[in-house]
Structure formats: structure tokens, C-alpha cells
Design a protein around this nucleic acid. Structure first.
Length: 499
RNA sequence: GCCCCCAUCGUCUAGCGGCCCAGGACGGGGCCCUCUCAAGGCCCAAACAGGGGUUCGAGUCCCCUUGGGGGCACCA
């Protein structure tokens, strides 16, 4: 029941940062292409020089690469239907705009922005819908050409039929009927010679053989215009799928700039490359994104491969979804736990090195099982594991004091622990724990009392991976040296009146 | 203001007329495990926006209301 191979595209405009909304659109397009054995391509829609942001295209490409949403054709890799940057296809749009004029579906318009604005104000005052008043609609084409030749500024507008209606179909919503009278003579080619989205996207989708257009719901209301353009050209219409917008975490209002800022303060982000830098892994981010707008009956933990196997574009939901960062954390943790030892070790190593630590690979590998269940993001490896690689740690003396004991008594406990550990016949977790537990029974102290002291002494912190496994890995030498140092600190603390 | 879209637990969703006194996941609560923090296991609370129809039967189909969202540019 697999449908024909689909050719899909992700067509962002480089006007800002690459966020999860765009990533989701790209993901679904990618999944549809892969699912059906088709192709997925990237096209940059940079026809608005005023809004162009340098570096934005780079960020999109980096983000897609990082997520493993690989495109078969694109601006940086080329392909048989290039160029894939609309700024490099300018003549094409000009040519097609004039074809429309010659076919009677479009017309040159010489109205100035000032006149247009005046008309708009009048219409508003008269409580009418603002729209083009049609002044240039019936201009003689020969006359128009002369004015253009003389250097007069003009735009090309679509000649929208005055009567009748048009049917458009959205895969998720069904057929929508729109009265032509509610549609405008929209600008196709701007006076600066660049096309608008309406023209450029339709032309490119056709020329590039796109079969399915997956895009944001902000395009739903211009779908009728697009259908008119496509039909005027006599082109086959692709299947259109309009995705809903993302809402703020509260579920109220669409995802805002403000939410984006707050998310960052919170250690989260809606920007893909930020997520990468924050220690999220692509598997987790992908799983999070794919489920906002698509539901699976059960087993919602999936790899990209599994998504491709299960994806069905018809099952996307047309209703808006609120972003939920807690869920992102969950999926990231789940996918980290699914990583192999080698894979996780390789991903963690840079985080330690970035802290200036000398990483012992054998030790790192042994640490992995201890670290893994505790990581939400990759950089969580630092608070749990950095102490393994440090030359020395600096416990807070007051944290070395055993609960319900004095500092002086704590010194005695530390001494005893040192005695036991240094006398161990073999250095492994089981032997060490057994010996220490024997001391527990003999002294009447609790595990948390004694183990707590040891933990702070050796790791320098009150929270760490399981104690004895950690001691085994960090080694006898470091353990005893740090314990010795802790005794010193404790003695000094005790003498200075600390309790 | 006009046009269009959407509507199941707090959130993401399953449900495509009887299998649903509505299933899963996150989050929340409880218990277990336990040397800290996690992870893990078990259990619990939590929804079909409201009102009309259609039908033997409606969360599922239709209409209205309400609520949310999108659009109405020489931006995409």
C-alpha cells in the first residue's frame, strides 16, 4: 500500500534562526520522501534582500545535518534541478511571470506604493476589505510595454477571475471552496525584479518535480492563489499538506520570541543548533519533534529509521501543538540510555576535554554504565563524572562531618575507613563494600553516614554515581590520597571549633 | 472588520458509528529498590468544550455557539 515515490522539499527563507518548527516541517517532508522511496531536497528562498540574514543558511544546513535530516539535492551539494537558491534563479521567475501575462493570467501594474496606500485607506474607511482596485488590470499590453521600455517601475500581478470559485484540497483537511471574489490580484513579481513567494515557490516546485508540499498553516489562506497560478500554467498540482503552528508551552498563543528567550534562560531552546550546544542528542530532539503533530498508538520512542518505517503523512494532526520542554528532556534521556558504551563514551569525551581535563579512555569506558542512567543531556556528565579525572578534589569540610556526629568523631570514622580500604586484599567494588559494611555492623553507624563521608572525601561532592563502583574505577591510589586529604581537612576543621 | 482552519486527560496524542464506563506517553501523586542523585518496576488521579440534530447506537457524521489559531503586503 506504499504510494508512489514522493519528491518533497524543505524551503526555508534565511531570515532568522533555525527553530524546531522549521525542523518539524523538514522532518515530515524527509520522512515522506524516505518512506516512499523518493527524494527530499533543500531549497533556500532568499528572494527578499531586505530580510536576508547572513549565516542563516549555514545554520539551517548545520541544523539539518546534525539532525540527520539528509537532503538529496540542495544549495551546497547541487543536483539535477539546481540552482537551489532562489536568488540564483531570478531570470526564471521573470520569464514565467511574462508567460502568464501573455496567456492573459497576469498584468503589469504601474501603481505606486503611495497610490496603493491611499486606496487602502479609503477602503478601510468605507469598511471594505483592502485589496487592489484593478486600475492597471485592463491596460493595453502594447501601451504597458512602452511604459516599461521607457523605464517606468512596475510589478506583475496575477489577474484573479472576478467571478466563480476555486476548490483546493489539503491532505489533512479535505476540500476547501473559496470564492474568487475574496481573492486579490496579488503581486507575483516585485518592482525590484524579484519574485514573491507565490510565484517563486510554484515555479520551483513545478520545475523541481515536487509531488508533495508540506508547509506551515500560514500558507493555507493563500493556497487558492497558488492553485490559480498552477492552473494558469497548466501544471499538475502537488499534494498540499498544511501543518499547524507551534504554541507556547502554556498552550496559549503561538510560539513567541519571548518564549524562545525564556526557554534559553531555562536551559532549553527552540533553536536547533542551541539544542546541540546544550548537550541534547539528535535522536532525542527528533523523537520530541516528530510527536508534536503526529501520534502513534504505542511505543513512542523511535529512532529515525523507525520513524521512516512507521510514518504516514495522512496521520498528521491539523490542530496546533504546544511545545513541552520537559518531554524533550525525557526523550533525550531515553535515547542517551539507548546508546552503546562506545558511542556514549565518544560523545561524552569532548565535554570533559572542554573542561581542560585529561581523559583516560579506559577509565571513561568503565564510567559509562555509571553515568548513563543519570544523564538528561550530555553535559550532565560533568557534575557526575568530572571528579574522576581531576588531580585532586576540594571537599567542603562541613560536608565531611558525618550526620549526627561531631567533627572529631568524623575524623575517627575517616581514619577507620582509610585503615579498612588500604588493607583491602583486592581493589574492587564488592570487596570494598563488604569490608565497609562489616564496619557498619561493628560500629552501629548507618550506610548513609559512613558512605556519605567517603563520597564527599573522594568525589568532593555530595552527589555522585554509586560509591563503590566509583572507587573501583578511580583506583586505590586516588581514593586513599583523597581520603588522607579529607582527614587533614576534617582535623583542621575540628580544631578550629567546627562541629 | 472580513475570509479560512482547528477543538479527546495540565501537555503531546490513539480513536477513523458499536471493540471506549475512552488507550499510550510526558508531567503529577503513592509504593518498591536504595550509600547520594538518577534509572528501573508496580499502582493511582486526570479528558471526549457546550447545545441541537442524524442513527437502533456518536468521542467518532451534520449544524450552531464558545474558545483557540492562521490570513487579509512590492515578507516569506
Amino acid at each position: 500500500m506504499l504510494s508512489q515515490p514522493a519528491r518533497t522539499r524543505f524551503a526555508p527563507s534565511p531570515t532568522g534562526r533555525f527553530h524546531v518548527g522549521g525542523a518539524r516541517t523538514a522532518l515530515y517532508s524527509f520522512l515522506l520522501a524516505r518512506r516512499t522511496g523518493g527524494q527530499f531536497l533543500l531549497r533556500i528562498e532568499d528572494t527578499d534582500q531586505k530580510r536576508y540574514v547572513p549565516g542563516a543558511e549555514r545554520e539551517i544546513i548545520d541544523g539539518l545535518r546534525w539532525l540527520h535530516i539528509d537532503y538529496d539535492e540542495g544549495p551546497d551539494i547541487g543536483g539535477p534541478h539546481g540552482p537551489y537558491r532562489q536568488s540564483e534563479r531570478r531570470e526564471i521567475y521573470y520569464e514565467y511571470a511574462w508567460k502568464l501575462i501573455e496567456a492573459g493570467h497576469a498584468f503589469p501594474c504601474f501603481c505606486s506604493p503611495e497610490r496603493l496606500e491611499k486606496v487602502r485607506q479609503q477602503q478601510l474607511a468605507a469598511k471594505q476589505n483592502p485589496r487592489y482596485d484593478g486600475l492597471c488590470r485592463s491596460l493595453d499590453l502594447g501601451e504597458a510595454r512602452r511604459r516599461i521600455a521607457s523605464g517606468e517601475k512596475y510589478v506583475i500581478r496575477f489577474k484573479m477571475p472576478k467571478e466563480g470559485s476555486i476548490e483546493t484540497t489539503d491532505l489533512l483537511r479535505g476540500t476547501i471552496v473559496t470564492e474568487n471574489s475574496s481573492l486579490d490580484d496579488s503581486v507575483l513579481l516585485k518592482s525590484d525584479g524579484w519574485p514573491t513567494y507565490h510565484l517563486a515557490a510554484m515555479v520551483d516546485d513545478h520545475l523541481m518535480g515536487i509531488t508533495h508540499v508540506i508547509r506551515g498553516s500560514e500558507w493555507l489562506s493563500s493556497h487558492p492563489l497558488h492553485a490559480h497560478i498552477l492552473r494558469a500554467f497548466g501544471w499538475k498540482e502537488p499534494v498540499f499538506v498544511h501543518l499547524s503552528v507551534f504554541l507556547n508551552p502554556s498552550g496559549k498563543g503561538k510560539l513567541s520570541k519571548r518564549t524562545a528567550t525564556e526557554a534559553i534562560k531555562d536551559g532549553h531552546s527552540v533553536y536547533v543548533t542551541d539544542l546541540r550546544d546544550l548537550g541534547y542528542i539528535p535522536e532525542g530532539v527528533l523523537n520530541w519533534i516528530v510527536l508534536m503533530g503526529w501520534g502513534v498508538p504505542e511505543d513512542d520512542v523511535m529512532t529515525l529509521e523507525e520513524m521512516i518505517e512507521r510514518f504516514d503523512v495522512r496521520r498528521l494532526t491539523p490542530s496546533p501543538a504546544a511545545v513541552n520542554f520537559t518531554k524533550l528532556d525525557h526523550f533525550n534521556g531515553v535515547h542517551i540510555r539507548r546508546l552503546s558504551d562506545d558511542d556514549l563514551a565518544a560523545r561524552l569525551k569532548p565535554y570533559f576535554e572542554r573542561e581542560g581535563l585529561q581523559v583516560d579512555d579506559r577509565m571513561l569506558h568503565k564510567m559509562i554504565p555509571l553515568l548513563r542512567p543519570r544523564l538528561v543531556t550530555l553535559d550532565d556528565c560533568l557534575p557526575f563524572g568530572a571528579w574522576f579525572f581531576k588531580e585532586q578534589v576540594t571537599p567542603k569540610p562541613e560536608e565531611l562531618v558525618v550526620k549526627d556526629l561531631t567533627a572529631a568523631q568524623s575524623v575517627q570514622v575517616a581514619h577507620k575507613a582509610y585503615e579498612i580500604l588500604s588493607a583491602l586484599p583486592s581493589w574492587d567494588a564488592h570487596t570494598a563494600e563488604a569490608a565497609m559494611r562489616a564496619y557498619l555492623t561493628e560500629s552501629g553507624l548507618t550506610p548513609s553516614q559512613v558512605f556519605g563521608l567517603l563520597r564527599v572525601a573522594v568525589t568532593g561532592q555530595t552527589v555522585s554515581p554509586p560509591l563503590f563502583e566509583s572507587l573501583e574505577i578511580v583506583g586505590r591510589e586516588k581514593t586513599l590520597a583523597r581520603l588522607q586529604n579529607a582527614i587533614l581537612l576534617l582535623e583542621r576543621f575540628s580544631e578550629s571549633g567546627g562541629d
